[in-house]
Design a protein around this nucleic acid. Structure first.
Length: 231
DNA sequence: AACATTGACAACCGCTCCCGG
DNA sequence: CCCGGGAGCGGTTGTCAATGT
């Protein structure tokens, strides 16, 4: 456990997000623990990595897990067990953390016992970002990180065609404008979905938030180009 | 209206793996 | 081959909005 003084979990502020994003934009990803220092963040390297991989990575796909994805998760979990990173590699835009959470909250009971009906009521709840403006960070998900390490090689082998296409787009999007354009392609469906389905606004909020961060003036005054190191 | 409970998920920790020296 | 540092994975927990009483 955590001991007598349990750690207080502190949500990332948009300011911290911006710092991290700008740092990675300008310097790329190298040693997370050092990056945290140089970026001016009082966060551990681990925390920064998690934040980037799960939420700030520009190739994030937001929104609810689809029935199709749910099926894949169930099937693969049956085959692989809790190897979330491998399962996530099969689902472009989804992270191991998200899948793990989703499994624990939605599918665990379903798999072990009788199906527990998914409560629509909870799914329609407003994002924290809407209820609490200081936290615009209440959404989820990402593609496998561009800095995916060799450990995930086996998982990478399982990457499907869609993901390959997406990665190809990322790699060719050295210019921030291209990157935004590419992200825009990913984001549009969520906007449309949000318009038609007010019960799933996560994607829209996230998209706007990420877009604002990506288009914010570069505080370091450096060129708006993603460093090669990131790719 | 106020309080309690539940559900969802962000964020943390410990352990393990990998890689370079 | 061994060791140390960094990164990643999986398990767990804290927080907070939504819902129930």
């Amino acid at each position: 456990m955590r001991g007598p003084q349990s750690v207080k979990k502190v949500a990332w502020s948009s300011e911290e997000d911006q710092k991290l994003i700008h740092y990675i934009r300008n310097h790329g990803i190298w040693t997370w623990s050092e990056m945290a220092k140089y970026a001016g963040l009082s966060r551990s390297g681990k925390s920064c990595r998690l934040r980037w991989v799960n939420y700030l990575n520009p190739c994030v796909k937001r929104g609810n897990i689809t029935m199709e994805e749910e099926k894949i998760i169930s099937t693969m979990h049956e085959m692989l067990g809790n190897r979330w990173s491998v399962i996530a590699a099969r689902l472009p835009g989804r992270t191991d953390n998200e899948l793990k959470n989703y499994w624990n909250t939605h599918l665990k009971n379903h798999a072990t016992n009788n199906p527990v009906p998914r409560t629509e009521s909870k799914k329609t709840r407003k994002p924290k970002s809407e209820a609490n403006p200081k936290s615009l960070l209440d959404t989820k998900t990402t593609l496998p990180s561009a800095s995916e390490d060799s450990k995930s090689t086996d998982a990478a082998c399982a990457v499907n065609e869609t993901e390959t296409i997406m990665e190809a787009n990322i790699i060719s999007s050295r210019n921030i404008g291209d990157l935004q354009s590419f992200c825009g392609q990913l984001l549009v469906p969520d906007h449309e979905e949000a318009l038609e389905e007010p019960s799933s606004p996560y994607g829209t909020y996230w998209n706007e938030y990420l877009f604002n961060l990506l288009t914010a003036p570069d505080t370091d005054g450096m060129e708006e180009t993603w460093p090669n190191a990131y790719f």
